[in-house]
Design a protein around this nucleic acid. Structure first.
Length: 283
DNA sequence: CTTGATACCTGAGAGC
DNA sequence: TGCTCTCAGGTATCAA
């Protein structure tokens, strides 16, 4: 589910019920997710006030009173479900317990925030806030796509001459943080670049064009509230998915939406992941 | 160093 | 109904 736009959407949804509030109690229902959960996690969370909720790449970072930060990664199937009183929104009963509710935060104001993750590729950790740069999951991340450090010259310097296919380069979190399989496909369709093309065989001006393409795709997805995200605020999942029109992803066999292009979207597999692209207008 | 394959885990959907 | 098979939004780790 979660690439950068989805994580940012989750962050914006959680901020009103977390920031400035105290975590009264935490339920930790298993010892690990993808990695072992931090030692004494429940005790280290309870009584802490959430000073701010940030996002770095696909990670949520909740800065807590007492000098620690709670790191949350949603993996492939992780969700943050809010139940109870959500300000300005709706109020409903607390959701029934699910076997994949791994961590539940009880927050001031009759709010519960449930981390649910069937596949358990997600992660949580606690670390000293002033040591974020050293955290093993954060230290090698590339620049944020909307940050000043991400620009045309950076991308050219970083990728030119490499043998890797451009699709793999975009998925490399050390190059740019936050793209996943869906948006990498969408970016390449937008930029008109064949996902199989190796970086060294792409002209510099076309590499440069990836920067605005990345920003445009991500900005539009954030604007839409994340493209593919089940509504994290609801316990029942009734809403399903947000409406969103991908131009390439998941559209195998469909007509290419590029104006004037008569191609058909094709699906291939690159390093074990599906890639959707138009062979006609992506060169 | 780079690049690609493998593994982790569960659930949904298709086909039979 | 129920079985088997494929696929899924990520990424750490290992092999070449």
């Amino acid at each position: 589910m979660p690439e950068l736009p989805e994580v940012e959407t989750v962050r914006r949804g959680l901020a009103p019920v977390m920031e400035g509030r105290t975590i009264l109690r935490a339920e930790v229902n298993r010892p690990d997710l993808r990695f072992p959960l931090p030692r004494d996690m429940a005790a280290r969370l309870s009584g802490r006030r959430v000073l701010g909720l940030r996002r770095r790449s696909k990670y949520l970072l909740a800065d807590l009173s007492g000098g620690e930060t709670l790191l949350i990664h949603l993996g492939m199937s992780g969700r943050m479900l809010i139940s109870g009183h959500a300000p300005g929104a709706f109020v409903h009963d607390h959701r029934p317990r699910d076997r994949h509710d791994h961590v539940v935060l009880h927050v001031e104001g009759d709010v519960r925030i449930t981390f649910n993750d069937p596949r358990r590729f997600g992660a949580m950790d606690l670390f000293a806030t002033d040591r974020a740069d050293d955290h093993r999951l954060l230290r090698d991340l590339g620049p944020e796509p909307f940050g000043n450090a991400f620009h045309e010259d950076y991308l050219i310097d970083r990728l030119s001459g490499r043998a890797t296919p451009v699709k793999a380069a975009l998925l490399d979190q050390r190059v740019v943080a936050g793209l996943g399989n869906i948006y990498a496909c969408e970016v390449l369709h937008r930029a008109g670049i064949d996902p199989r093309r190796r970086m060294r065989a792409i002209a510099r001006h076309r590499v440069a064009a990836l920067v605005p393409a990345i920003r445009a795709v991500l900005a539009e997805a954030i604007e839409a509230g994340g493209s593919s995200l089940r509504d994290y605020r609801r316990a029942d999942g009734e809403l399903g998915y947000f409406q969103h029109s991908f131009r390439a992803y998941g559209r195998e066999g469909a007509a290419c939406p590029t104006p004037g292009c008569s191609g058909t979207i094709r699906r291939i597999v690159q390093s074990g992941r599906s890639t959707f692209f138009c062979p006609a207008c992506q060169r």
